[in-house]
Design a protein around this nucleic acid. Sequence first.
DNA 1: TTACTGAGTGAACATACGTTCACTCATGTT
DNA 2: AACATGAGTGAACGTATGTTCACTCAGTAA
Lengths: 219, 219
Amino acid sequence: MTTANSSVIEVAQTSISRGDRKLRTRAHLLAAALQLMGEGRGFGALSLREITRTAGVVPASFYRHFRDLDELGLALVEESGVTLRRLLREARRTGLPPRDILRRSVQIFRDYINAHRLHFMFVAGERSGGSAVIRAAVRAEERHFTDEMAHDLRQLGLLPDLSTPTLQMTCGLVVTTMMNAATDFLDLPPRQPKRESEITENFIRQLRLIFLGARAWRE
Amino acid sequence: MTTANSSVIEVAQTSISRGDRKLRTRAHLLAAALQLMGEGRGFGALSLREITRTAGVVPASFYRHFRDLDELGLALVEESGVTLRRLLREARRTGLPPRDILRRSVQIFRDYINAHRLHFMFVAGERSGGSAVIRAAVRAEERHFTDEMAHDLRQLGLLPDLSTPTLQMTCGLVVTTMMNAATDFLDLPPRQPKRESEITENFIRQLRLIFLGARAWRE
DNA sequence: TTACTGAGTGAACATACGTTCACTCATGTT
DNA sequence: AACATGAGTGAACGTATGTTCACTCAGTAA
């Protein structure tokens, strides 16, 4: 027929640019690492070979994209940070729900976690254990998230009596509680609505208690 | 001189019983695993051989004590659970400090963490990431800790207006915050009193906010 | 004193690992 | 049309891994 300008195994691909192809493989490597971690092991327990194997690439190709596993890990932290911040951005765009603010926010959060399971698993898993360099990066990303949340709360006029440091401290507490709830949600076996609503209710009550405390706070 | 009844490399040891010797090696294996994790990697990133190497034993000996690494991990969880609960037990024995309850409790907690760094590193690190079976065991141990704390608070007559489920929810929040602070303390480079007191103050303020919220709570 | 038990040994195995290297060959540049 | 680039390849390397096995030889029980 026409000129056969595609390789045998990539029949459906008509002329991807060189740079795009590279980005695609890089994305495959990142996705492979996330997928393997999703199967229940920390980042530190992954091997370069199984990542490339899962990504459908030969081991040596890895070095075209990352110097070593740590560099791949840091890229994952950045990617996850974007996912984290998008949650706040969407909340900002949507605005606060008119009624049942906490409950609805938690439901949105629960859905968001499930839509980005692997990123949250990664962040929740590496924020405490594992390698020091990755943990530091995660904590930094988490602090940006906290700061942005504090900024948003200020903008919304919530908790107007709190000083900025106190607002930040409060948001830190919220984020810690959130990450904890994320682990709970992600550990939940599928089709367990009973346990799921227990976790949801517990999370809502903890947030309610935090905001009660923030309202009662006097500098 | 007298009868040479000790091996060459264990000169100082005079006749340890067979069972005790076994327990000793087992303890060496557990300590080796903790030590390696203290050098900055998750439990899942440890290998059987380096654990036995660190413990000063041949790899095959491992199987005299544990079926596999997971079993060693579960033993560590139990050991750490004991350390956790001892904190509560000592607090119960000592009684509450008369003044500055929160600040003094946090100082005691900070000292306790530093006296048991490896156990807290292990618990904080494996409570979210890593292997599912170990994480589950850690969370169970953490729940026992939470329940015991709730029981103690009740006994002390603190927060008498809270229902038991609410008290439990509150203690869950305290424990989560505590584990988070533990990670912060443990990540601290030594000789950084500035950062250390920042973390301490932040932790105190978060606890104060939680108890403020608990006082304001209405069922 | 004799016999038994079992914690710890040392060697061997099949596999998996990280890293290197010279290579191909589609894409981009001249 | 001829050339240069560099992402991806496949093979090779030395090393580390988990597990097995028959063994030794203190400590225990008979």
